[in-house]
Design a protein around this nucleic acid. Sequence first.
DNA 1: TAAATCCAAAATATCGATATTTTTTTATCG
DNA 2: CGATAAAAAAATATCGATATTTTGGATTTA
Lengths: 232, 232
Amino acid sequence: MTDAPTGRRGLTTLATSVYDAVREDIVQGILAPGTKLKIAALQSRYDCGASPIREALNRLSMERFVIQSDQRGFVVAPISLDDFDEITETRCLLYSLLLPLAIERGDQAWEEGIIIALHRLNKLPRSNDLPLDESLAGRLAHKKFHRSLIAASPSNFLIEMLDILFDFADRYRLLVGRIAPEELRGEAVREHAELVDHVISRRTDEAVNLAVHHVRRTAALFRNHISLVKSK
Amino acid sequence: MTDAPTGRRGLTTLATSVYDAVREDIVQGILAPGTKLKIAALQSRYDCGASPIREALNRLSMERFVIQSDQRGFVVAPISLDDFDEITETRCLLYSLLLPLAIERGDQAWEEGIIIALHRLNKLPRSNDLPLDESLAGRLAHKKFHRSLIAASPSNFLIEMLDILFDFADRYRLLVGRIAPEELRGEAVREHAELVDHVISRRTDEAVNLAVHHVRRTAALFRNHISLVKSK
DNA sequence: TAAATCCAAAATATCGATATTTTTTTATCG
DNA sequence: CGATAAAAAAATATCGATATTTTGGATTTA
C-alpha cells in the first residue's frame, strides 16, 4: 500500500512502521484533515519514543500527507475543493500523457501485468460488511491495477507521482464515505474491463478517453460532498 | 534554492538547515554519488546531534536525493546513464504537457513573471572565476526562470516535480564539470530569449519545440561525460 | 582457497531527559 | 470591558547515552 522510500529488506524500523501506520490512518480519515499531530500523543499511540515519530512525520511531510512548520510541529494535510480538483486534474493529465506512451512501448510482460492486476482486482474475496473499495486489500488492488496500465511508460517519477495522487484521491473518497450505490460499482468493473480491452488492443484514443472519463466520473460522484467533511 | 516542505516563518530549525546544506552539497557534487552518509560524521560536520541529521536525511530520501535502507542508513543517490536519461525524458514530457496549458491559461501576471525572471537571470552579476551557471545564484535564477514559464499551469504537483528534476539535472551538469564553452552559454541565452518570445506570443508549438530542444541539447552536451564521473 | 563462522568494531535506530519556543491562561492597565 | 502584558503550561526540537544490528576482518573448516 505504501510508497515507503526505504529499501526494505527483512528487518524494518520503528520509524518505518509508524510511517506506514500514520499514512494509512490519514488515507482512511482516521486522522482527520487538519488534525494536529502531537508528538507526545503519537508516542503513546505507537508506543515508542519521539525520534521514530518525528522521522515518520518528516517523511510524510515531503509527500504532502502532512504539513510541517518549523517550531510548530505537524498537522494532517487539510482538504479543500481546490486541492481535490487539482488532484483530479493532475491525474487526468498524467494518464493522458503516460497511457499513450505505455501503449506504444509496452511489451508482453506489460500486457500480462495488466491482465493479472485486473484479475486480482475482480477476484478479491468480498466481505459482507465492508465494501470492497473501502477495504485495504481492495484499495491496494485497485491502485495496482491503475499502475499496471502505465507501468511501461518511460518515467518512474511520474508513475510514482500517480501512485501518491491515487492515495490522495482515495482519502477524499473515504472521507466522504460510502456514496457509491451498487450499480455504480458495477459500472466501475465494466469500465475496467473495457479499458483493458482498449489498452491491450492499442486503441490509444479510446483508452485515454475512457481512463480520463473513469477518473472524472468517479471524482464527480463525491465532489459535492467534500464540503460536508469535518476537519479539525 | 530549496524545496523545503516546512512552512518557514522567522525561526528555523537545525533539521531544516541541515536539510538545506546536505541537499545543496549533493547537487554541487561535494557529496559524491553513492557516498555513505554516516550520522556521526554529519554530526561533527554540522555540529549538532543525531536527531536533526536523521530528520534531514529522512526528508531527502523522500525526494530521492538520498537512498535510505532500514538498519543500514543512508547513501547519496547514485548516478547512472539510465537515471539521467529518465530525468531528461521526464522533463521534456512535462514541458510538453505543461507549457501549452500555461500558454492557454496564463494571464498578465504570469507573463510579467516570465519577463522578470528572464531579466534577473540575464542581469546577474558575473564573477570572473566562477561561471554564472555554476554559482548558486545563477542556478537559482535559472531554475526560477524555467518555473516561471509553466507557473500558470494547473498542477502545482507537476510544477514542483519539475523543480526537483531541474536540481537532479543540475547535479549531473555540475558533476561533469565545466564543459560548456563560451559560445554554448551564449546560445543558451539566445534560446531563453527566443523561448520567452514564443511563449508570450502564444506560439505554442514553437515554444514546446524549443523548450524540449533546449533541455535535450543541454543534456546532450554532457551526457557522454557522465560515465567518467567518480562515484563512491 | 573458497566458504562458513565467529568476534570485535562501527554504525544505526531509539530512548529518556532537557532547553527553547509556542500556546494558553491569568492578571493588569488604559 | 477590550487590549496588552506577564506568567504558566504545553509542545517542539534537540541532546547525550545506549541497545541492536550490520560490517569487516580473522579464523577455522571443508
